[in-house]
Design a protein around this nucleic acid. Structure first.
Lengths: 342, 342
DNA sequence: TTGAAAGCGCTAACAG
DNA sequence: CTGTTAGCGCTTTCAA
């Protein structure tokens, strides 16, 4: 590093080598050089080799701007994220980043959390002309938004969920809910509470699992809360306020479940002796807190979604396939048969 | 939404609105429109207003490629993140995204965890500027990398830490460590353990705080572990293995602290009655688990860093200032005087 | 203060 | 198979 006091400031960029230089050195026309470097079909092998050599020697790096301007792809993918700071989305992003990087695509992040942000994105479409594809992370896209997305003229892939007509990669949320519920039912619980975050597939799994077990789902046992630990804590408090509280609770996700457990501890109740709790995700803290849960491969969902985008951009994606990755019950210490002594 | 089975595929892009269209609608020349939209000086206020109005009405989005090709900025900022899925970095990203968006800058995410990924970034960002600036999130930048960045002609800002000559925004890590240590010392602890993740400022605060209190820092009381809950658990296990275990522990961060507490619980020890634990961050789970900690404004650090970049790109940043945001001790339930009954 | 015109570096027809 | 020729959309001299 220079001792220059101004060294933190930007210096002058290095001299640029253009395709023209490469073409000249290889003794071909600019157009041929372009074709040779791109994976174009009709180029003599020898020519191609010569051009590549020249490019190599000159340490040539193409200008993405110029390429794009002339009609090529941008080499960029927009990623729509509602909550970047949540573990789930962070994992999704890590997986995506890895796959996109491997495909030589840059990841441009757009946060679309609240309604204003959504509106800001879909109305203004700041991604216009800036990306080749859009990856939507676990957010529902309504018809109007879908229409806007379509007007972008880019490929769309969904990760961590499933949205109408787009290719997607996610888990079977209903199935995951069933795994959790069936586990509780197997243990012998009949009065099972639900702490939902949305009226989603996991919530509906609660109903159908109960119904299938010949138990009438009671509305008072289902409560919907804001996402997160605090929400979970509040939901559990509500359930404890019931004349007859449940003997087990299925929480929307691990963080919500952890919140529920806090409420139980504060109320002097033991988990799982007095009440069983199960979540979904297999968040790192679930292992740490010995939380029984239904694990889902989050990073993998991101990775696959990234691969799907890459394939779509190559034109290799024929059908809007919806990939469903497996979930699995992880037995730990927060569930046991009802009224189990110790 | 169309019922077309192919509707998931990219549709034809909506006709792109060019600067030309804006200029025409505003009744000025292309050049004037460009100047009006850019913050150029010599444009009549009325003209500028008219052009802006036209742009607004037409929902105009500039083509970054064309702008860049013609010598302008890219309107993009690279963000280097080591671990996107960790809460700390997610928060930083949320803050950054908000600030960059407000400045009309796009955020391009690059993960730079291991050495290979770093190399990939510094090699590939190459020669051609894909971004106008780089925000480095809490990672060290070596001299070669620094040189590379400088030669690319991009501005650099650091968030969540402090790196050599760059403008940065972070906290006083040593100070935060002192807040934690002083709290423990105030409570009367003399034998205080350290679970470090690095040989960093927080770790050094452990030493100086003890020394200042007239206590000789014993090496066996300081243990370094891998980041995260598992690391914390392991570190605590090591400390418990000592002939004379500490009566309190300062953990590098909340997640590490949570891991330590797990080990204590499993060992049948009570927190804080048998052993006090304090972390740093004020992670959402800290509130949930009643963990005493030193809070730092993470999202705010990201936000400020974003503002700094925007300023630097406008040329409004005169000096490489290093902003230090305040931390504060958050008293909760995992610390108490040593040997405190109940 | 504004307009006209010249590229920025590359890709994609269209000829040869 | 390869060369020629237009632009892509924007920022900038250079004049007016």
């Amino acid at each position: 590093m220079t001792g220059d006091t101004q060294s933190w400031r930007r210096a002058a960029p290095a001299s640029p080598v253009t395709l023209d230089d490469v073409a000249r050195r290889a003794g071909v026309s600019l157009a041929t050089a372009s074709r040779a470097l791109g994976e174009h079909p009709h180029v003599a092998a020898a020519t191609r080799a010569r051009v590549r050599e020249a490019a190599e020697a000159l340490d040539y790096v193409a200008s993405p701007e110029a390429a794009r301007l002339a009609g090529g792809p941008t080499g960029r993918v927009a990623v729509l994220v509602p909550h970047p700071s949540r573990w789930f989305f962070g994992e999704l992003i890590e997986g995506l980043e890895a796959a996109l990087r491997a495909a030589d695509l840059d990841l441009v992040l757009f946060r679309v959390g609240g309604p204003e942000e959504r509106a800001a994105f879909f109305d203004r479409l700041p991604a216009r002309r800036k990306v080749d594809a859009v990856v939507v992370l676990a957010v529902a896209v309504d018809d109007a938004e879908h229409a806007r997305l379509a007007s972008l003229g880019v490929d769309v892939v969904v990760a961590g969920g499933r949205v109408a007509p787009y290719p997607s990669v996610g888990i079977d949320d209903h199935g995951a809910g069933r795994q959790a519920m069936d586990h509780l039912l197997h243990l012998g619980h009949r009065r099972i509470g639900l702490i939902a975050v949305d009226d989603d597939a996991r919530a509906s799994a609660w109903r159908t699992a109960l119904a299938d077990a010949g138990i009438e789902p009671e509305d008072e046992l289902a409560t919907t809360v804001a996402w997160g630990g605090e929400g979970g804590a509040e939901g559990m408090a509500r359930l404890l306020g019931l004349r007859t509280p449940p003997t087990a609770v299925f929480a929307h996700d691990d963080e919500t479940a952890l919140g529920a457990i806090r409420t139980l501890r504060r109320a002097g109740l033991r988990v799982p002796e007095d009440l069983s709790v199960i979540g979904v995700d297999d968040h790192p803290l679930a292992a740490l807190t010995d939380l029984t849960t239904v694990a889902q491969p989050v990073r993998e969902q991101g990775r696959r979604a990234g691969e799907l985008v890459a394939a779509a951009l190559r034109g290799d994606l024929q059908e809007p396939l919806a990939e469903v990755l497996p979930t699995r019950l992880v037995l730990r210490g927060t569930t046991s048969p009802p009224g189990a002594p110790r």
